[in-house]
Each structure stands twice: as C-alpha cells, then as structure tokens.
Design a protein around this nucleic acid. Structure first.
Length: 688
RNA sequence: GCUGUUGUAGCUCAGUGGUAGAGCACUUCCUUGGUAAGGAAGAGGUCAUGGGUUCAAGUCCCAUCAACAGCUCCA
C-alpha cells in the first residue's frame, strides 16, 4: 500500500500500483484532464510515472497554472521542433534541446544550414504535430541498449554523449513521439496537444558542449506558451523592452555616438551623456574625499616591461591592442630585414619593446606607490583615478556602451596592511552601496569570483589566494544580501566581489567590483617599513564602484528608460513661452534659473504651447516652466512636472527652492514598471 | 573570433532588374496661442564600401566594413 501525500497535507492511500494521473483521476476528472506533469518527492516526473507500491510519497500535480508546467511544456515543444526540423532537413544530428528562461532551443548539426527562411515551414510542421496530439512515450533502456539505439539511428552526437557524459548512468530514457525518438531525461507533457502557441525566434551558432574548440552547431531558439494571448503578450513585452534599450535611447536623445570611422567599441560622449557622466563623477568624488582617497592622474600608455612585470601582457595579450613601436626601432628592424611575420612573432613573444595602451590602471598606480619609501604610518594609501583603459574585445562581443574597447573606470587602488584589509574592504563595499542607492538600483546581485583550481591563468602563491578568498567571502557576508560564489571568475591576480545587474533584455553585466590582491605587490616587490623597522609587503585592493562609466551609464539609461532624475538630467528645466509676446520675460526667468545653477533651455519658438509641452515630454525633461502674460504680470512661472503634470503658478524663488531640494535629495520620481523580461536563468538540461 | 540576420534621407522604415519614396525631425513663411502634435512651402541621397553578372543593379552574385541576436571570451 502506498500513501500519497498531497500539497494540502491530505493523504490518499492506494492498494494498487498507481501513477500521478491515477491519483489525479481519483481526486477528480477535471484535474486529470488539466494535469500536465507531476513532482514526486521533489523530482519532476511525467503523469505516467509509476509510484512505488508501498511506503509514502509526496506528490504535486502540475497544471497550466504552475510555472513548472510551463517549462516542462516548453521542453516538449523543443522535441516537437526537432521533429519538425528532421522532417524538413536531411541528415540532422541532434544535440541538446533544453529550456532557457522563457525560451527553449535545440542544437542541431545539419548538412544544409537552417535559416530564417525555413521558419514558416518549421512552424507549420510543428503546428501539424501539435494538432495531431500524439503522446510522448517514455522508454527506459539499459545503457548498452540505449547506445545501440542511438547508433542505429546514426545519432553520433547522442552516441558520443552516452559514451562520455553519461558513462556512469546504468539506465537511460528515451521519449518517443510518432517517428521521433530522442534520448531524454524528461519529463514531458502527456501529449503534443498540451503545447499551446509556439513561435520560432532566431537561429544562432553554438558550440557542441559549449566548448569553442568543438565544432559549431546550429541553435534554433523558440518560445511556447499554453495560450495564444500569453505569446502575444511576450512579443509585446520584448518590443517594449527594446524601446528602453540604451542604444536606441542613446541615439534618440543624443547621449552618445559610436562612429565607424572612429572605431568599433569606441564611445564618443555627446554633451548630454557627458553631462550625466560628469554628475556621477562629481557625486562619487565627494564620497572619495570623505573616505580619504587621493586623486592621481596617469597616462594612457606605458612600456611593455610594466605589463610584463604585472602579468597583464603574458596573461591577456590577446585582449590588448598590439604594442606601439617607435619610428627608429621600426626602421632598424626593417634595415635588419625583419619580415612581417618576424615582427608579429617578436611582438607576441614580447622581444620588441614598445608601449601598450593600458589595459588596466593598477600598474601605473603601483608605480606611484613605489616612487617613495612608505611607512606603516602612511597606510592605507588610496589612489583614485578615472582611468581610461583599452582592451581588444572580440568583434562579436562589442555593442552599445555595455561592451566596448575603450572605457573609463572609476578606479582606485588601496595599499593596506594585513590588519586593514577587512575595514578597507568594508569601506569599498559601502561605496558601491552608496552608488546603487543614489540611483535607486536595488535589483543587483552579488557574485564572489574565486580562482578555478584547474586553471593555470592565475599568478601567485595558493596560500595568498586562500587568504584573499577568505577576505572576500567574509566581506561579502557583511553585505547582508545573498551572494553566489563562482570559481573561475577571479582576476588573474586575485579574487573579487562583483555587483551584477540585468539589462533591458535580461543580459547580465558586471558593474561594481572590489578585488583583493596579494600578488601584484609581490610581482612589483612593493614594501613599506613597519613599526618593527622591517620591510613588509602591503596588500592591494582594487575597486571600481561604477565599474566602467560606459557600462554603468548604459545600464542606467535603461534603468531610467532615458528619463533621468532631476539631479542627473542633462536638461533639468525646459522654459517655454505661451506666445512670443512673453519672450522678454521668458528670457529673464531663464537667466534667473540658470543663475541658480540649473540646466535650462528656453523654447521661444513660435509654436503653440501644447506642441512645446509635447516636445519636452518626449525629450523626457523633468520640469517645464511655462510663462505667459499672466506670469509676467505676477512675476511667477507655471511649473509642470513631467510625471505629475501641471503644478500651477510658483514664484521664481519658490521654484528654485523646490527644485534645489529635489536635487539635494536625489529624488527618483518615477518607478518604471519592470518590462517583465525574465533574466536568463540557468538552463534546465533535460537531455541528461 | 564563430553562426544567422540586416545596412536606402538626421531618425523609423517602404521600395517587383527599368526616372529614389513616406512619416517624423530640419529650414523658411503664415499663425500669437495657457498645459501632450496649428498650417504651408522648401531643402535633404554616390541606396555601407569595393568588385562582378546584365542592354540596364538600391534590387542578383562575391568580398570587405559595420550593426543586431546567439555562442565563445571578458583582467
């Protein structure tokens, strides 16, 4: 006898072998019809799963209302998609087909590439399969037999996967749907009819087992919903999300420009974007002063030797612009008969001395620290600079402000004693929190990047790494926010605490970062004189609360959907006249607002007021100051809030006081409805 | 870097191998008005770049550059 415990606490007992479907039927025919899948003792199963004959199990039945059912259905839709593709394309080799966030995909190896032109045919075939409503049948086989089945089907990727990835599985399962049989862990919906509306999205390349050294497969992305209306809603949400894309808004509002002739990933800051950046820099500068930082400036280039010592050149050469060589050196090489390939080789091996566009600011700051003898009494030394760095990012990665080839870090390096590490880390984290709070971004996540024990890309003594990692972990705990630890995410010189946010289409970006480094001080042989009159090695903390100004502002544009709060808005007040009759008074008011420190622009065009207001609304100006004959008479202006509308007449002084207070308090007026784009979650890998 | 898609006016986009188009923005003129679009006229183009096919190419083919999406990478 088996006791089945349901989520409401009730227990049903059965004297026979039952499946989740049987239990559902026992509860009611409506539920049996609505059930999609189930969960038994925390494990997702199909409705035909055989429950144990005795003992007690916890059973949850999923219907369309459960989000679990939605992912299970999408996974089934992936099978239907693969089945449709196999009917249309010859020689299709199946790889994996998991669910990822709101989407699902299937990776194929095909003789003839799938293109978007194939979408209508594939979708049509999928709809036909769904309409036919054939069941998904689970078939379990011992490993040997399963292997043979895949060999017989000539599915070489599945064969490879069974032989390597699934070597320790004794029994494997398949799901069959008509002529389509796929190795799969499941579970699936009972039959294809449960799949509602499907839509193919795009085709992309993806490497077999996510390894770039493996062959590239074709990945077909799609989404599915139980309901047509939900699909329409999804399409709408994606379109909405695109409207707040910083690249779209950046062009529309003139925040920045990227010019082909200047170069890929090189940002030209237009006045409006530059203003926002300036305001942010002023803001953090104030906090740097409070926390005892010293400002420094360093050049954009440095000799190769510097980066050989730091390790940047040997470890990240591929992501750097090649070294700059001087004319004499180049001529000498030419006279010696150096060929292009010789030149390339000697540059790579670092034999030719040149200058590197700096990929990071730390070596320069280290040299400032090292320029004089330091006492323990001087520590901590905190050197800050908005330092611009250049990295040769792969062309396919570059885009907008979030991934660029030249960017400015709000960088600083702290040189501290062992005893000071914890306090200084706390100060750095505090700064990051201040930054996020100032702009009302609270949906960030924290990631502690640790070294990957299997990799050779890290420098230094493992004992130092252990100390640094412990310090990061302890510091992260003080944030009072859950954080994840990710091996392999550390810098080559030390572990770090990263602050990660999502962009408007759900991609994750690292903004602020705080890193603990025992290694660069060693590589540069840094020291300070301790109280014992002996040399001691300082520890470095690298930190950038914004991360990169480019990326931060890119994300910030999306966060505010282009509508900056008053303290950051590049145009704070649009002054407009009701008609040209009030122009003189308008200019007087404009001057007074400007004198009070506001960014004001006067709109004196011979347009109707409604039209001027509309323009200002569209340009997302926080406040409009309307002046007409009545205002000229009473010495007032009519203030209009972009969000709240007409606020009525105020004197100029009242206006200035009100807006200054709003700037002071850094008020964020509008909360934007989340676009509802679901950030990418880890994919559910049902294909074992 | 890889796979796929896309490059037409400042922006968003139409355009069937046969004379280059629209809306918005811009300029000028008319309108002088009180809280989200007043009216008219005008200007604006080497159809990304370079080759090729063709009597004829924005349109078809190839290459390059760039953008977008996804991989891979990201100190």
């Amino acid at each position: 006898m088996v006791s089945v415990r349901l989520p409401d606490g009730s227990v049903k007992e059965f004297n026979r072998s039952v499946t989740p479907l049987d239990v559902a039927s026992d509860i009611g025919p409506g539920l049996a019809k609505a059930a999609i899948a189930a969960e038994v003792d925390g494990q997702q199963v199909g409705l035909d799963y055989a429950l144990p004959d005795d003992g007690e199990v916890a059973l949850k039945l999923f219907t369309k209302k459960n989000s679990e059912a939605l992912s299970i259905m999408r996974h089934s839709a992936a099978h239907v998609m693969a089945r449709a593709v196999m009917r249309i394309k010859k020689g299709v080799q199946l790889a994996f087909g998991p669910v990822k966030g709101e989407q699902f995909y299937y990776d194929f190896e095909v003789d003839e590439p799938i293109t978007e032109d194939d979408f209508p045919a594939i979708e049509k075939e999928m709809k036909a399969i769904i309409k036919k409503n054939e069941p998904f049948e689970r078939i379990e086989r011992p490993r040997d037999e399963a292997l043979q089945i895949c060999k017989d089907m000539r599915q070489k990727l599945k064969v490879e996967h069974i032989e390597s990835g699934l070597a320790d599985h004794e029994s494997l399962s398949f799901y069959q749907q008509g002529e389509f049989l796929d190795l799969c862990r499941g579970p699936h919906v009972p039959s294809a009819g449960a799949i509602g509306a499907v839509k193919l999205l795009f085709v992309a390349g993806a490497y077999w087992k996510n390894d770039a050294s493996n062959k590239q497969l074709q990945r077909l992305y799609a989404t599915a919903f139980f309901d047509k209306a939900d699909l329409a809603n999804y399409v709408e949400r994606m379109a909405e999300a695109q409207k707040r894309d910083h690249r779209v808004l950046g062009r529309k509002h003139g925040f920045f420009h990227i010019d082909e002739m200047v170069g890929q990933g090189l940002i030209l800051w237009a006045p409006k974007g530059a203003y926002v950046r300036q305001k942010l820099q002023e803001f953090i500068h104030l906090h740097l002063q409070r926390q005892g930082y010293d400002q420094v400036f360093t050049p954009h280039i440095g000799k190769l030797d510097l980066y050989k010592t730091s390790g940047h050149f040997p470890y990240y050469q591929d992501s750097q612009y090649p070294p700059l060589i001087n004319h004499d050196q180049l001529k000498k090489l030419a006279d010696e008969g150096c060929t292009c390939s010789d030149l390339s080789n000697s540059m790579k091996s670092g034999e030719i001395d040149g200058y590197l566009l700096k990929p990071m600011n730390c070596p320069h700051h280290i040299k400032i620290f090292d320029a004089q003898q330091r006492s323990y009494r001087d520590l901590p030394i905190r050197l800050a600079e908005f330092g611009t760095v250049y990295r040769w990012e792969q062309s396919g990665e570059i885009g907008g402000l979030t991934r660029v080839r030249g960017f400015t870090q709000d960088d600083a390096h702290l040189f501290v004693t062992e005893d000071q590490v914890a306090d200084e880390l706390a100060g750095c984290l505090e700064l990051v929190k201040i930054v996020f709070a100032a702009v009302g971004m609270d949906d960030y996540s924290v990631r502690v990047g640790l070294r990957d024990p299997d990799s050779s890309k890290y420098v230094g003594d493992p004992a130092n790494w252990d100390k640094a990692e412990l310090a990061c972990r302890e510091a992260a705990k003080t944030l009072g926010k859950p954080f994840i630890e990710e091996p392999g995410e550390a810098a080559f010189y030390g572990p770090k605490i990263d602050f990660v946010v999502n962009d408007c289409i759900g991609r994750k970006w690292q903004l602020g970062t705080v890193q603990v480094d025992y290694n660069l001080p060693e590589r540069f042989d840094l020291s300070y004189i301790g109280a014992d009159n002996k040399h001691h090695r300082p520890i470095m903390i690298h930190r950038a609360p914004f991360g990169s100004m480019e990326r931060f502002i890119g994300v910030l544009i999306e966060h505010f959907a282009g509508a900056f709060p008053l303290w950051l808005a590049p145009e704070q007040i649009r002054l407009m006249t009701v008609s040209e009759k009030s122009e003189d008074y308008g200019r007087e008011v404009e001057q007074r607002l400007k004198a009070a420190g506001f960014k004001v622009h006067g709109d004196f065009r011979p347009e109707k007021l409604g039209s001027k207001i509309r323009d200002a609304q569209m340009e997302l100006i926080p406040y409009m100051a309307v002046v007409g004959p009545r205002d000229a008479e009473s010495g007032t202006l009519s203030l209009r809030d972009r969000v709240d509308g007409d606020l009525g007449a105020l004197t100029i002084d009242e206006t200035i006081a009100k807006l200054q207070k709003e700037v002071e308090e850094k008020v964020v007026k509008q909360k934007f409805a989340n676009t509802g784009v679901i950030a990418e979650e880890g994919e559910t890998q049902n294909e074992y």
